[in-house]
Computed example of a mutant assay.
Amino acid sequence: MVTVNEAKQLIVAHAAVLPPETRKLADTVGYVLAENINAPLSLPSFRQSSMDGYAILHSDISAAGTGLQLKGESKAGQTELENLTPGFAMRIFTGAPVPDGATAVIMQEHTRVAGGQVFIDEFPVPEGKNVRRIGQQIMAGTTALTAGTYLSPGGIAFLQGLGITDVQVCRKPKIGLLITGDELLKPGEPMVAGRVFESNSGMIAAALKQEGLREIEIRYAGDDLDTTITELQKLVEKNDIVLASGGISVGDYDFVGEAMNAVGAETVFYKVRQKPGKPLLFAKKDEKLFFALPGNPASSLVCYYEYVLPAIRKMTGRTDLFLKALQLPVKYGYSFDGERDEFLKASIADDSVIPLDGQESFSIRSFALADAIIYLPVSQNKVAAGDLVEVHLLPF
């Protein structure tokens, strides 16, 4: 049995970044760049107005109320412009090119137009006012984004603005999920006494999709060793990470650990000193990772967030592997006995964290209401209201 921190360290050490792939930029939100991107052009690539108003020579303005002759206009998308000469002003719009000769743009709210002239009610006017310089965002040939950058909508907009259409990103893992148990019914099947509707497949698949994973293969096996091995082997052949739900404890019908050995997975650790989720198994075969998760839904989801998610993020090139953690005061006191760290389903409200009712490993309703997990090590097995506790924010 390993500690919580030892388990996390072992998983991160054994997970490796997947090889890169080239994707269309529009399809890369949530991916991580696998290469440095150099700017093929400057942004902006021409001097650009940041206001609706009038392009002028700042040196023409000797006092508030100076009048200038109007000469033409510049609108967004215009490609040909006359030069601006002293004593003249040009009507200009936001995003439009600033004509050669102009050194500033005066916003229209600070002007008056009469008799073919525009009067500038502003003094002094600094050179470059309201003019976006060539390369003000980035200069051509410099690094736009570095390898390892997580591509957010803002990142995609930035690269698209540079005219980039394809990028190399770290591939996301293909996930195989094995659901085990004779007692399980699929949703839509008629209820039978002594059996339960299986919910872990939907839960884990939803968590994977929330992380941006789409290649998810789900298979099912009853409490039978041969069937478990057969279905597990099918998942191993096609996927980078294989998850199994249930069948990993010490019961007479728990075959997942044995089945993982049969398909060639080498166990890294089995059992973590925690509650819930003690019977967690982590194994590896070549570069493929295996997680045998407890069958109880709450235990399974805790183990996903605390252990599987960091492995996924490591394989996709991310550096923020773990759930965001912070210290918050706990609203109510809590204590526990034993030698295992505890994870509590929780909700954040009014700058404090509330342990929810229903902390049992089978209780998933409380997870439906949770937005955080409280982590209490054995060294902090008794907390009073107002004490600071470690809180892991769920990724939504």
Rank of each mutant, 00 (worst) to 15 (best):
E183N: 10
F255V: 00
E217G: 02
V242S: 00
P124G: 10
P355N: 06
R313I: 00
L281P: 01
S335Y: 09
F255H: 14
Q78H: 03
Y220H: 13
M191Q: 14
I216D: 02
L356Y: 02
S45R: 06
S352M: 09
N38R: 14
A259F: 09
T180W: 12
Q108G: 11
E231L: 07
V12C: 12
S245H: 03
E198V: 03
Y307T: 06
G141K: 03
M260K: 11
G181V: 01
T66V: 13
I354W: 15
G277K: 00
Y305K: 02
E287I: 02
G194W: 12
R214P: 00
S335L: 02
M191K: 14
I134H: 11
Y332N: 13
V2G: 09
P190I: 04
L184W: 05
F269C: 05
V353D: 04
K285L: 15
F322Y: 13
T149S: 15
T165H: 08
E109Q: 14
D337Y: 04
I216R: 07
D252Y: 11
L68E: 07
A349E: 12
I134G: 08
A193V: 07
E360I: 01
P377D: 11
Q160W: 08
I204L: 06
E80V: 14
T103F: 10
K172E: 15
L328D: 07
V196Y: 12
S366D: 03
L151P: 12
F93L: 08
Q137C: 08
G386S: 13
G194D: 14
T319N: 13
E306R: 00
V32F: 11
K331A: 14
P310Y: 10
D182I: 15
N381S: 14
N5Q: 10
E21V: 15
H110E: 12
G295R: 01
G222P: 02
G212C: 07
I204P: 00
A64N: 06
F158D: 01
G181C: 09
S335V: 05
M315N: 08
Q359S: 06
Y270W: 11
I134V: 15
T28D: 00
V308Q: 00
G264L: 06
T146Q: 10
L321Q: 05
I138W: 13
K288D: 00
Y307K: 07
R273E: 11
V12D: 01
P40R: 05
D121H: 02
R112N: 14
L326A: 08
A311E: 02
S45H: 11
N38V: 06
V167M: 08
L70M: 13
A385K: 03
G163T: 11
V113K: 06
D226S: 05
L43I: 14
L177A: 02
A262M: 04
H14T: 04
E217T: 15
H14Y: 10
L281I: 15
I175Q: 10
V330A: 10
S347H: 09
F255G: 00
I364M: 13
L280E: 03
L323S: 11
M260S: 15
P297Q: 14
G188S: 11
E339T: 10
R91N: 03
T111N: 13
D320V: 01
T79I: 09
A7T: 01
Q137R: 12
G53L: 06
G101V: 04
G264S: 13
L369T: 11
F88C: 04
E35T: 12
D27Y: 12
I179F: 05
L280G: 04
A157W: 09
L243I: 15
A102E: 08
D121G: 03
